[in-house]
Amino acid sequence: MATPLTAAQMYAALLAEGVNIVARPGWETHNRNHKGAWGPVHGIVIHHTAGVGSGLADYCSRGSSDLPGPVCHGFAAKDARTHLIGHGRTNHAGSGSAAILDRVIAESGGPFRPGPDEVDGNSRMYGLEIENRGDGRDPYPAAQYDQAVRWAAAICRAHGWTAQSVIGHGEWTRRKVDPSFPMDQFRRDVAARLNSSPAPKPPTPPKPSPSVLEPFPGATFFRVGRRSQIITEMGRRLVAEGCGRYKSGPGPEWTEADRQSYAAFQRKLGYSGADADGYPGPTSWAKLRIPKT
């Protein structure tokens, strides 16, 4: 049992453990504390995303209508970068077994056989999402897996916990099966890191730089045959917004699928008729927030 780490303490602990951090703007105050308690904390829950793609970090931050974000504290991407998503109460664990919580608190180890859902895990556990389809065939790149181990070890080290404070979502509740790798081995890997010396004391964490966005390239830019990385990045953001209408891609060439996807985004913003024709305008473009290429 412990008081939750502050955002600054978490950042410093992860940096010292060698986590390759991507600090999303505003992560320090992005939470659901208005929905319930955050803390005392007892352990860590490991998840897989059940999908892959460039928009998953955005999804983890935003969530969905039936599961509002943030849906985790950290997101370990396949490119071996770990995004800081939120700090405080997040929608990751849901309810779980009181018996499992007792084992985590006691650090008594497994077997972790969850019983009825009785306890609010969102108030008591940190959560890490790992990018993976979770089908048993999608691999976890070694560098990505190492980032997940370091993330869990950093929080355990900061709280003085052992690796027995780390469980999988499928060990917390009968409703889930993730992650799709053996948690006993993951705990052994976390324990091995905890038995090693941490990295030297980190420098003062830098403040996240503001996002640099792609300016509107003009209405005449979006025509059949146009090729540009800007179009690819636009498509990725449309997919992240749930508006993708692509059978493959998105790619760098403007196509009918791009127009249909953008029209879906315009309708999402409340436009209709000629204002939702699928051709970007400066107002909707600014709201799509496309990273500078």
Rank of each mutant, 00 (worst) to 15 (best):
P139G: 11
F186K: 11
S97N: 14
T49H: 11
A12N: 02
P215Y: 05
V71H: 06
G63M: 13
G136A: 05
V19S: 00
V45F: 08
H47I: 14
D117I: 11
N91Q: 14
I46R: 15
A76R: 05
K78E: 04
V177R: 01
K268N: 06
I85C: 04
N31P: 10
G170T: 03
V104L: 11
G249Q: 13
D66K: 09
K247C: 07
S180T: 15
S180E: 12
H30V: 07
R236D: 03
G134N: 13
R227T: 01
W254D: 02
G270V: 05
D275M: 14
N195H: 10
I290K: 01
A286E: 05
G136E: 04
D184S: 10
T220D: 11
R188V: 13
V119H: 05
L269Q: 05
I155S: 04
G136H: 05
C72V: 07
R174L: 11
A77S: 13
A153M: 02
G43K: 11
L67N: 10
P182Y: 11
L213K: 03
A240R: 06
G273Q: 11
T29K: 08
D102V: 09
P282W: 15
V224T: 08
G160A: 11
G43Y: 10
I167V: 10
I85V: 07
G225M: 03
V41H: 02
H87N: 07
T29H: 12
Q147G: 09
C72G: 11
R62P: 01
G94D: 09
G53Q: 11
L101F: 00
K247N: 11
D184R: 06
R236F: 00
R133I: 02
G94T: 12
R81Y: 12
V71K: 08
R223H: 04
P202V: 09
A199G: 13
G96H: 09
P25A: 14
R62I: 13
P217W: 13
P182I: 12
A50F: 12
